[in-house]
């Protein structure tokens, strides 16, 4: 594939990309809406699907910029962003959001965990710092902790741990 291809796709969030059952879930009131920002397409699709399987609604973005441009920004209850991305990193995205007064609880994920970077992130208000590949139980507890209420279980999740 060409480099341009992911960028073109990035401008169209995966929210409406037609995976089965999406419409049903997204109509449910009270179910949390989670944004996933990751430049790697397959990682993003997998994360979006896992979050949905955990019972949340989810929407994927290929870059921090496309997320910031999104009209759905205000509807997001939680943000899960990759640390290493070309252009704006996950941490920069969090700082930008915080700076513009949009307080979306943020979870950073990375395939290259680093203790110093983790502490730096938590100091500036990132809720959780988790490693890839995403473990379902860990992700679930992180989302719950990030949004701050235990009731934030995914609707229809049969086995909340």
């Amino acid at each position: 594939m060409v480099c341009a291809a992911p960028k073109l796709r990035c401008r169209h969030p995966d929210e409406t990309s037609g995976s089965t059952g999406l419409g049903k879930v997204s109509r449910m009131p009270g179910v949390l809406m989670i944004a996933i920002v990751d430049d790697d397409e397959s990682a993003r699709e997998a994360a979006v699907d896992l979050v949905k399987a955990l019972g949340f609604r989810a929407s994927g973005f290929g870059s921090a910029a496309s997320f910031l441009e999104s009209e759905d920004l205000s509807r997001m209850d939680c943000l899960i962003a990759d640390v290493r991305m070309p252009g704006m990193s996950g941490l920069d995205l969090h700082l930008t959001l915080a700076g513009s007064g949009v307080a979306i609880p943020t979870i950073l994920m990375t395939a290259y965990p680093d203790e110093y970077a983790r502490r730096q992130a938590l100091v500036v208000g990132v809720k959780r710092y988790i490693r890839k590949p995403l473990e379902p139980e860990e992700l679930l507890s992180c989302i719950r902790a990030a949004v701050g209420h235990a009731a934030a279980s995914g609707n229809g999740d049969p086995q909340p741990s």
């Binding site: 790697d40 397959s42 990682a43 699709e45 997998a46 994360a47 699907d49 896992l50 949905k52 399987a53 395939a111 890839k132 590949p133 995403l134 473990e135 379902p136």
Partner: peptide, 9 residues
């Protein structure tokens, strides 16, 4: 990593 996440999902 994507395979693990997809399989978990």
């Amino acid at each position: 990593a994507s395979m693990v996440t997809s399989a978990s999902a």
